[in-house]
Amino acid sequence: MFEARLGQATILKKILDAIKDLLNEATFDCSDSGIQLQAMDNSHVSLVSLTLRSDGFDKFRCDRNLSMGMNLGSMAKILKCANNEDNVTMKAQDNADTVTIMFESANQEKVSDYEMKLMNLDQEHLGIPETDFSCVVRMPAMEFARICRDLAQFSESVVICCTKEGVKFSASGDVGTANIKLAQTGSVDKEEEAVIIEMQEPVTLTFACRYLNAFTKATPLSTQVQLSMCADVPLVVEYAIKDLGHIRYYLAPKIED
């Protein structure tokens, strides 16, 4: 028996919004430690890794490890039927081929349930090596989303250059060149507005705007985003999900042809 309950459906809606542009379907691996999802996008350029800890749920029970392959378009249709403030409960029997998603209004006067067929997905799990990153940048998630959106107008690619002075995002194309520099913030009143750079050595990497923009669909989940970079390895873009877990996106760099 698997049962996981969250106080607000809005969190689940935001999580789905953060992955459904990259993935058509995905397997949710459930165990007593929580729910994990790891999947590559269709073109195998990026990898999404979602971790939701069992202690972040209002109620969590998972008697046996369970892998639930879900069509994310179908899940989106179901979540559309929830009000943001509704409680949401996911339930499945052991070895079931369906999952039930139930919404309850705060006053419990409206209860709806949706049974969704599960899929057998033949997904490859990849082992992600530990990396000592050259640069780790923490910055406001909204600012990162804005920069990715703005630079995508100028080029398919953005160059991220990180030094101890700051981080520079550049794009160059037919229109010309765009550069956005962010300096590390001195003292800030609000932690969520800070730009913090931890640098071992400077790094310059090139990434496809299209994927960065897809990752920024996670912006509503978190006030800050963390970018971890190292020469010739994938960028890690991480959004914390408060009290519940995190979503990480890995993006392979563009390399000299």
């Binding site: 990849l126 082992g127 496809a208 994938p234 890995y250 392979a252 563009k254 000299e256």
Partner: peptide
């Protein structure tokens, strides 16, 4: 000119 690398060239299959 740059070309897009695939993610599987960085991570091993489990």
């Amino acid at each position: 000119k740059t070309k897009q690398a695939g993610i599987m060239s960085f991570f091993s299959k489990k």
